[in-house]
Design a protein around this nucleic acid. Structure first.
Lengths: 199, 199
DNA sequence: CCTACCGATCGGTAGG
DNA sequence: CCTACCGATCGGTAGG
């Protein structure tokens, strides 16, 4: 990787500020100042503040999509795919916390046309998860009354990471994924104790 | 309930706009206009825009806390408490979607002092969940390697609701809670198929 | 990338 | 609750 261009560095700085303060609360003067230039000079590299937001959010959507695409294409058993998909999702967030925060927090600030574009990528992403769960039901390795809620549960847990994950924390992304999968796969009820006897 | 005061109606309108457009993107002129008055007249009812945000967020925190407090105090079995706590959480969000969205999305826009106040209430809320899980482990009805992650999973799922729940949707809060609890309690692995044989 | 600036709009106030 | 307004700041541009 060559040294990052000024444009790339502007994007990194915008991600940082948008994630910390929010899109609307961040001024282009702050972004410019932190890059050592004046606000007017920003416009030699970008054409509008919203373009900056769109590029961050769209890059994020692509990162999630390409991570799960490679998992979907593997020929591992479905429960392994589930673990790999969750791990990949967590890694995307872990490696770009700022962009992930902007992705979940600020994508609705985009114009309607661009919002639709991002929504389409989100739909595509969810479809990958659905496919993994359906495969698991088809081969008998998974059993669930409501796959839609399992997917919702998985993505809720995976997405919520942007609220609490810290790269300096004690657990690597793989370990976090393992713990969630273990809970989800086995459940929390103690098999030694019959539920029906307690009611 | 008597007719709501102008102040209460301003809070409702502010919740609606803050949740839809974000705190910083909402102007006090919009709030005033939607209440049929001019922006300057707002200040007869509130003292600042941030006060409006704080009141919404703080009311939300109190709603979550009082909902789980009544569950904690009941003498039902821990798994029932889990279901009740999740149901109560979902109901708080369902009954005040706008405030819940502002609570999760905009609380970081508060001043540091007020942010600390809200954080303290969030910590207290999490402690209630921990207590329920610990009770379940103590009486043997639940079994988990990592209670911290079970709590994280529960709260991730519960909190993510503000992204997708719609009061007009097909499922009542209780039904949503039931489906999540069923997945979490029983797990998704098909007991008829041994995991170790597939590796 | 800077100088110099624009029209618009922001949260908020004084005085009634 | 209105009239009338404030200082500050916003995103963005023209011309170099």
């Amino acid at each position: 990787m060559a040294r990052p261009s000024q444009r790339e560095q502007i994007l990194v700085e915008a991600s940082r500020l948008f994630s910390k303060k929010g899109y609307h609360a961040t001024t282009i003067r702050e972004i410019a100042q932190n890059r050592g230039i004046l606000s007017g000079s920003l416009y030699a590299h970008i054409s509008s503040k919203e373009d900056l937001l769109f590029e961050i959010v769209d890059d994020g959507a692509d990162a999630f999509l390409s991570a799960i695409a490679s998992v979907s294409q593997s020929d591992r058993p479905p429960i392994d795919k589930l673990r790999m998909a969750l791990c990949a999702h967590i890694q995307v967030i872990a490696e770009r916390m700022d962009a992930a925060t902007v992705f979940f927090h600020e994508w609705e600030a985009l114009s309607e046309e661009r919002r639709r574009l991002i929504q389409a990528k989100r739909d595509k992403y969810e479809a990958h998860w659905n496919a993994i769960l359906e495969e698991g039901m088809a081969d008998g390795s998974m059993s669930m009354a409501d796959p839609k809620f399992v997917r919702l549960m998985l993505l809720s847990v995976a997405n919520w990471l942007y609220h609490w994950y810290r790269p300096s924390g004690p657990l690597a992304p793989e370990e976090i994924a393992d713990r969630f999968i273990q809970i989800l796969v086995n459940g929390i009820e103690n098999p030694g104790k019959e539920r029906d006897l307690r009611a």
